[in-house]
Design a protein around this nucleic acid. Structure first.
Lengths: 117, 117
DNA sequence: CATTTGTACAACCATTTGGTTGCATGTTAC
DNA sequence: GTAACATGCAACCAAATGGTTGTACAAATG
C-alpha cells in the first residue's frame, strides 16, 4: 500500500496512537520484538486488555504479528509511522504555503506602492 | 508549553486527528481562518456537530478560537502539529537506533571472525 | 498422557464518542 | 425595539472504547 492512505486508514492509525499504553507498546517493540505475553507482563492491566491493545495496533498497521509455535511475535511496521508523519507534513506544507502567499501579497503591495511614486 | 507534552496532551492531539472531518477542518483553517458557521456550512452534519468537532480540536490545542463581535474565528495552531510530529520523529529515531545497534553487532562479529583466522 | 504455557475470543460493563434536537443568549441590522 | 444571526449548551441516543472475567484450544514440557 504505497498509495495515499484512505481516511479510514488514517483514522485507525491516529486512533491507535491516541492511547499512552499503545504508544508505549510501539516503543517497546521498536526496541526489540516482543511476545504478546512479554508485553502483557509489563502493564498493570489484564492479559486480555493488552492483547486487545495489540490487536488495535495490528489493525492500524503499526505493528505486525507473526506466529512462532505457540508464541506470537509482535514487531513494528515503521512504514506506517511514516504514513502518519506524511499527513502531518502535508499540514505543515499547507501552512508554509499560506505564509508564502501572504509574503507574495506583501511583495505586490510593495511593488504597487513603488509604482505609485 | 514548550516542554515535553504529557501523555494526556498527546492522547488529545492524536484523538483529535483520528477523525476525517476534524482533519478537514484543520486543513481549511490552515488555508484561511474560518468562522464556526463557515465551517458548519461545509459539512452534511448539523451545526452543533461541527461545533463539537471544533471544540475537540480546541481542547487538543490544534486550533484556537478568538471572538470577534458575535462571531468566533477559528485559526490553526501549527506548533501543536509540530508536537505530534515530534512524537513520531522520536519513534523513528528509536528505530534508527535499533538499526545502528544491529549494525554495530555485525561489526563486532566481523571483527571476531577476522581475529579467529 | 497430564499439565502448564501462550493466545484467542466471547460476554459483559461503564464511559466516551459522534451525532441529533431544542433552547438560551449575546450581537448586529432594520 | 424587533428580527435575524452566530454561538453555546443540555439532554438524549446509538455505537465504539477500554476494561473485566471466564472459557477454549493448541503447543511445549514433564
Amino acid at each position: 500500500m504505497p498509495s495515499r492512505p484512505t481516511d479510514a486508514e488514517v483514522d485507525r492509525i491516529f486512533q491507535a496512537l491516541a492511547d499512552a499504553t499503545r504508544r508505549d507498546i510501539v516503543r517497546r517493540v521498536i526496541g526489540r520484538e516482543q511476545r504478546v505475553s512479554d508485553l502483557a507482563g509489563r502493564y498493570e492491566m489484564s492479559f486480555a486488555a493488552v492483547q486487545k491493545h495489540v490487536a488495535v495496533l495490528e489493525r492500524s498497521g503499526l505493528v505486525a504479528k507473526r506466529r512462532q509455535g505457540r508464541e506470537q511475535i509482535v514487531s513494528p511496521v515503521v512504514a506506517t509511522i511514516g504514513r502518519a508523519r506524511g499527513l502531518l507534513d502535508e499540514l505543515e506544507a499547507l501552512w508554509r504555503g499560506r505564509i508564502d502567499r501572504m509574503a507574495a501579497i506583501l511583495q505586490e503591495d510593495a511593488a504597487a506602492a513603488h509604482a505609485e511614486r
